[in-house]
Design a binder for these strands. Structure first.
Lengths: 203, 203
DNA sequence: GAATTTTAGTTAACAGCGTTAGGAAAATAA
DNA sequence: TTATTTTCCTAACGCTGTTAACTAAAATTC
């Protein structure tokens, strides 16, 4: 029966509409406003049918973050390919990361927040491709120094921590203007990037 | 009746025991394991009486974080007073901050997490004394440059972001050894501190 | 085409949450 | 002793996530 295909497609559609509805609610009312009955309302079903598509509420969150990782990875990849100079490349990549965080605030919070310790299981990034992309670019930039894998990881981790810290504090609000925050971010990225291939004069 | 005093003291005691019980549960089971009935169980009462001491669950969280801020402030102040050199002073202060975060992981998460956006109202630090302490120390270190209040705020904010970022990522786990993470932290603090009073050679 | 099975979707319910209302028992006051 | 206040509990409400039981329609089989 070829109708199997159509049914399969329909199922896929419903699945997606659940995810869309969930994220729409989160965007409108924040994570605490999200519940199964509200999702059901939006897709014009009742709550129990959601469980035919997802094991539980948390599974929806996980899939949402997976999509988030995929989108983010794409954006970073694009940013990488718009520049040729390794330094500018890395800066563009982090800028893409930064932009994503604020364009998808709620998603970023679940993806990278310390937060999830308190209201749902820790969600482990399924595909660590942003990680790989950054690691590769950092390796390029440090080619002269022949860094080991461990050294690269440390560099990435430090880099990430700084950016993540800036984003976190920015989201909570620090009383500084948007322009100032942008400037701080750019300065930080530029400074760390340079530190990767220039010798440390303070060492 | 002088028994008024005793009763007052008893009330205070019960109040404290509620806070203690709450934090004990959080330490044992995490934030998601905390609920009113469990607190009541520990203090050997039933849930409704908690509402004679706190308006609601969130009020308990807020008071817990306030205590957290007070403790943290004390620790930072002590750290500051153990060093005389302004550079070392600032480094000791951030180290105290760092140590507090890991000694009181759960508390730190509510105090500074991006997190709380998703499971309870944002908790605004009531007393920003850590902020003031740091601002003052930074001002000392930058005395030569006569920084404006806005500049100081930017420095503090950048500083805090980096440390908070390192802590956050550390709590989630980054696959590096504790010793490595410690080293990264120390390097970062030392580097930023130096950047406050040494001219930027890369500028 | 009729009988049967499978599927899709519903309603009702459970257990656990924060929180509130109302009442029983105990302590205090008269 | 009686009246009043205080202390504390039980019961319940409305909200969660989730499951069970059922119905009606659709698909399949004979």
């Amino acid at each position: 029966m070829a109708s199997k295909d159509r049914i399969q497609r329909q199922k896929e559609e419903t699945r997606n509409s659940i995810l869309d509805a969930a994220y729409a609610i989160v965007k409108e009312e924040g994570w605490e406003g999200l519940n199964m009955r509200k999702i059901a309302d939006r897709i014009e079903y009742t709550a129990p049918i959601i469980y035919e598509y997802f094991a539980n509420k948390n599974a929806i969150l996980i899939e949402l973050t997976q999509k988030g990782y995929n989108n983010l990875t794409k954006l970073i990849r694009v940013a990488r390919d718009t520049e040729t100079d390794p330094d500018l490349k890395l800066q563009a990549m982090w800028t893409a990361f930064w932009d994503f965080a604020f364009a998808n605030k709620e998603l970023y919070q679940v993806m990278y927040g310390v937060e999830m310790k308190c209201c749902s299981q820790t969600i482990v990034p399924p595909v660590e491709t942003p990680f790989e992309l950054f690691i590769n670019s950092i390796a390029d930039l440090m080619a002269d120094q022949q860094p080991t894998a461990a050294e690269l990881k440390i560099k990435y981790y430090t880099f990430f921590s700084v950016i993540h810290g800036l984003i976190s504090v920015n989201m909570i609000g620090n009383g500084l203007s948007d322009a100032t925050n942008e400037q701080i971010f750019k300065d930080a990225v530029s400074a760390i990037t340079k530190s990767l291939y220039k010798e440390d004069v303070n060492a």
